[in-house]
Amino acid sequence: MPEFEPKIVAFCCRYCAYTAADLAGSMRLQYSPNIRVVEMPCSGTIEHGVILNAFEKGADGVYIAGCNLGDCHFLKGNVRAIKRVAAVKKVLDEIGLGGDRLEFFHVPASEGTKFAKVANDMTERIRQLGPSPLNKSAAGNAKKEGGQTA
C-alpha cells in the first residue's frame, strides 16, 4: 500500500496567494504536489456551498488563501471568507467529516515561501487525518496531477 497522497483544493485569491504561487514557481521552490489551485477574484467570493461541493466530490482537504488583514483589494473580502470558513468548519464538525479538513490562510503576494509552506503544512495535516471517506481513489493519486497553478 503506497503512502496516502491527499487531494487538496486550494482556493487562492488572485491578488495574493495566486500571485505568490507564481512567485514560488519563479523561485524554483519545491512544494507539495497534492494541491489543486483554483484562482479566485477575491477570497471573499468563496461560498459555503462551493466548499462542501469540493468535499462531496472527494477532496481530502480544502483551504482558502487570502490577503493579510487590511490588505484585501476589496477591503473586507478576506474577513468575510474567514467567517464563512468558520461556519463551514462547524457544519463539517456536525456532520462528522471534521472541520480540521478546512482552513483559511493568509498568503501575501510577495511571499512565495509562505505559499509553499502552507501547501506543505496542509498536505501534512491532511495526511495525518487520513483520506476522506468520500474520496473514492484515496491512494497513489499525487503523481499525475497537481503541483502547478491552473
Binding site: G49, E56, I95, G96, L97
Partner: peptide, 18 residues
C-alpha cells in the same frame, strides 16, 4: 436556494460517512 444546496450537500456527506 443557496441554503438549500448547502443543506443537501451536507446531508449527502453525512450519510455517506454513515
Amino acid at each position: 436556494e443557496k441554503e438549500t444546496e448547502v443543506m443537501a450537500s451536507a446531508m449527502r456527506i453525512k450519510r455517506t460517512l454513515e
